[in-house]
Nucleic acid binder design. Structure first.
Lengths: 223, 223
DNA sequence: GTTAGCATTATGTTATACATAATACTACTA
DNA sequence: TAGTAGTATTATGTATAACATAATGCTAAC
């Protein structure tokens, strides 16, 4: 039995239309009323279907102008669904882990894209590194600045957006009681050490160094 | 200026309600009409807001019964937004790259969770490895089986779901003209080699081996 | 030629009515 | 008394009509 509602069908219909017609970004689609007529449904249904497309990032709607096709930015969409308060604890912990995976695994893309300019920027960030007496917030900001720059250097916008997305989750998990308390804050490979490797080392070296740099996080995950 | 529409406000309102009241999964929320009354908006607006929550996986709606709170599975949501045909080429390529990052970076989680049983399963998969004369499809299936098992072993469900999500994109990119043609299909570290390392090696060794194993993919990305 | 203001148009919002399906209740029958 | 058929109820699904609002484009006045 087909349990799908009218709106479901209209939505699928519209998506199919976008794919088939190979409509380009910026193309406008007919008005709600025209669509309603052509599809033989009420404006209400058409509106709900369009609303879904909008949520999926497939279209943008402007008053008077109508709807235009946009390139779906999946991450801005996910972002709205990623409120840490609404996710269960296990998922939160797993997302925390994913960040570690990404930062260790992206070494090759770093080395592929890095320029002298990037190195300079990284060194600039390090120079402003707060000392241990400073407020916790400064440390967080600095961490984000440094690691965020790394994502940027990969040249992979999707990766960068993903990181931006995971940031609040990461912070939330870090501060919540989800993970074990940090027993010993040992100093491992520093930011400066990472930059040195980026300048003179290799992806292999960087992966191991980054793994070491993140050791404190790993310690909190593994018993 | 506040450009947000009424629906935006109602949506935010409802989410806030869910968070504040700490409503549990399975709890029912008031009917559309009740909500409309309490929020002072029309039923249409309330409906649109609820539709958004539904799309975000926060609620499920049944006829007569009303809406109940559900645990949001972000990945089933993203899945619907991730039709390769609807993404632009650059994003597709970048998602392709993300897979490589993940598989290299997850070494530590593999070693942390792997059991003798896992090793046995991996060896079983390798045993059925199709030889080079076989159909392309068989190779793909085998690749998915092997690498999918790795994600599974990490014990990170989120990671596993993410991989499942990226599969169609990966396949799409692999077969489309987005990447350079594979010049030389050289043999690098094999699946068997990877399993050997999982059995007797270390995360460091595995990362390098996996990087090597994926060399053909990297070659297609880097000029 | 530029701008003020009006007309137009498509989305945003409200209100109302009916359709539909799932639940709850009632009454009838074995 | 138990079980079931059938009916009432209720909340979502869909349709229609009307007005609000804002952006666009046209027109006329300066």
């Amino acid at each position: 039995m087909d349990t799908s509602s009218l709106v479901d069908k209209v939505e699928a219909n519209l998506v199919q239309l976008l794919v088939d017609r190979k409509l380009k970004i910026g193309d406008v689609i007919p008005t709600e009323i025209d669509l309603s007529k052509n599809l033989g449904v009420s404006r209400t249904v058409t509106r709900e279907a369009l609303l879904r497309l909008r949520m999926r990032g497939l279209i943008e709607t402007k008053k008077k102008k109508g709807s235009v096709i946009t390139s779906p930015d999946i991450f801005s969409i996910i972002g709205k669904s990623l409120d840490p308060h609404l996710l269960d604890q296990e998922t939160l912990k797993e997302i925390f882990e994913m960040r570690l995976v990404l930062e260790i695994g992206m070494a090759d893309f770093l080395f592929q894209n890095i320029t002298a300019e990037h190195i300079k920027e990284l060194k600039e960030i390090i120079k402003n590194e707060p000392d241990t007496s400073e407020n916790y917030v400064f440390h967080i900001d600095h961490e984000i600045a440094f690691h965020g720059k790394l994502y940027e250097i990969t040249g992979n916008q999707t990766l960068k957006k993903f990181q931006k997305l995971l940031l609040p989750v990461f912070d939330y998990v870090h501060n919540s009681g989800l993970l074990k308390k940090q027993a010993t804050i040992k100093k491992f490979v520093s930011h400066k050490g990472l930059v040195d490797i980026l300048e003179n080392g290799s992806p292999e070296l960087f992966r191991n160094a980054m793994r070491n740099h993140l050791e404190n996080h790993f310690l909190r995950i593994f018993s």
